[in-house]
């Protein structure tokens, strides 16, 4: 058994919260630069330049990319040969988020009850997912998610005979409904299959996949291409003011499902979709 002190987990999460909020993902930066080359409309070009400038300022001046520093999802990929010592793992994860948001002067955006709505003032609790794998390593991924885009996400329980065209049309409709509201150009995380909840969690995980990585499954790669093409044909453009760039990328993750259904979830991500990982 490899022993890991939970304080190490706290410290790592605190650092990752700050890193994710201050540094634009390099694959997104590359996608924005590619979009800038493709756009012809002067306003769309100017907006894309502002977004790239925003990333530069955030990194250089250590400012959060966006004031909505999100509610945090923490993914723990835990090797089964690890024994956590020095306290309760869940509390350590919470402590890490609290510390990161305090130290990074990040916005605390979590309310204790969705109905009573009193801010917890710590940006905790995070949403924690654990996955048990082989080995003795711990991979931590921190995903701060703003709600401008989260609010535009959707799930649909299709019947088993739904076609790829039906799925694409549902997803493109989600983009259309998001319109200019959720900070386009968007990144689409799509989860297909599993159960109601599995599809939604896959959709969020799909947002973490680098935009320039090709899906190894050909049928999904083709569907991603169709969705991207149709979404960009909407002409929503940067900030919704028109242009060729409505979506920077669409990634699909799938999971086996039941003979009677075909769940499809789409998690809308904004142009600064954030995450950061490390291995302990």
């Amino acid at each position: 058994m490899r022993k890991i002190d939970v304080t190490k987990v706290s410290d790592a999460i605190s650092r990752l919260c700050i890193k994710a909020n201050l540094n634009l993902r390099s694959d997104i930066e590359r996608a924005l630069r590619r979009a800038l080359k493709k756009e012809v409309k002067p306003l769309a070009k100017r907006i894309l330049r502002v977004l790239l400038e925003n990333a530069k300022i955030a990194e250089r001046d250590r400012r959060p990319l966006c004031q909505d520093t999100g509610i945090v999802s923490v993914y723990l990929r835990v090797g089964q040969n690890i024994q956590f010592v020095g306290g309760e793992l869940k509390k350590a994860v919470e402590r890490g988020v609290r510390k990161g948001y305090e130290k990074g002067i990040l916005r605390k955006s979590v309310v204790k009850s969705p109905l009573i709505r009193i801010n917890t003032s710590t940006n905790t609790p995070p949403v924690i997912y654990t996955d048990i794998v082989r080995g003795d390593r711990l991979k931590i991924t921190v995903v701060p998610k703003g709600f401008g885009s989260e609010n535009k996400s959707a799930i649909k329980m299709f019947g088993p005979t739904a076609t790829e065209k039906d799925i694409a049309s549902f997803i493109v409709d989600v983009v259309k409904k998001a319109g200019p509201d959720a900070c386009p150009p968007y990144i689409l995380g799509i989860g297909i299959g599993g159960t109601f909840d599995k599809a939604a969690s896959l959709a969020k995980k799909a947002l973490l996949v680098p935009l320039d990585r090709h899906n190894i499954k050909k049928h999904l790669r083709n569907l991603e291409k169709i969705i991207l093409k149709e979404a960009n044909a909407l002409g929503i453009g940067p900030l919704g003011l028109g242009g060729k760039t409505t979506c920077l990328g669409a990634n699909i993750l799938e999971y086996p499902t039941h003979i009677a259904g075909l769940p499809v979830a789409v998690n809308v991500g904004c142009h600064i979709t954030r995450n950061a990982s490390c291995i302990v």
């Binding site: 502002v50 955030a58 909505d68």
Partner: peptide, 8 residues
């Protein structure tokens, strides 16, 4: 105003 450009 430019959404998602809070630092700028």
């Amino acid at each position: 105003a430019a959404g998602g450009a809070g630092a700028y």
